[in-house]
Amino acid sequence: MHHIEIRNVTLVYDTPNGRVPGVRGVSFATAPSEFLCIVGPSGCGKTTLLNIIAGFLAPAEGEIRIGGKAVTGYGLDRGIVFQDFAQLFPWRTALGNVAFGLEMKGVPKAEREAIALEQLRLVKLEKFAGAYPHHLSGGMQQRVAIARALAYNPAVLLMDEPFAALDALTRDEMQRLLAEVWRATRKTVVYVTHNVAEAVYLADRVIVMTPHPGTIKAEVPIRLPRPRDPLSVEFLDYQKQLLRHLTQKEEAR
């Protein structure tokens, strides 16, 4: 049984210089609770693909199914975390941000605040529930964003390079935390990144995309026990394998 199913999705951008293919004929599927990473260079259409799954963009062709149902537009079955720290609402506290989705669902105040606090505890920020985003560091803001996307219990978590703008040390810490959160919640995750090591650390399976137009180049299952050791030989072998897929394209051009 598939959880997310992408069938033959194509999207074309209309630009002043004519029609530019964003992604072409992309198909893949995930199992329930699978952690899927999409890696590729800038401009390969990986973010476009994520935005299609999120429902922000409508594909010209193809179909998205989640839990067997075709989806159009966005909905509470998908939680979304963006790269930009500015995604949080500055006029709401960490708790207020996390509770937003539940508020839209009509969950009573006491209940939604209890759930939001639970989510903040999951990302180890319960002490900062009353803080406004501008008082939090970048890494903390991204953790609030993760808690916010999980709070209304979506079936799927979509993440667009959430840690790309963080420093290397914070990024490592965040990857460990995300792996823990994923183990605790068992969400299906689609995670877009250009960082090969990040993909090997997090993913059950990695999809490699190449640009112009964005197509799937390879699929690599990562068969390593968790928690993973980024310095192990097997880990580095996977990294090499992914890098080879990414650079072959360059040589062929």
Partner: peptide, 17 residues
């Protein structure tokens, strides 16, 4: 910020809310 509109939309905010 369009990101706020996207995030809010994804969390089910519509119309008056």
């Amino acid at each position: 910020n369009p990101l706020w509109l996207r995030a809010a939309g994804a969390m089910g905010a519509r119309g008056a809310e």
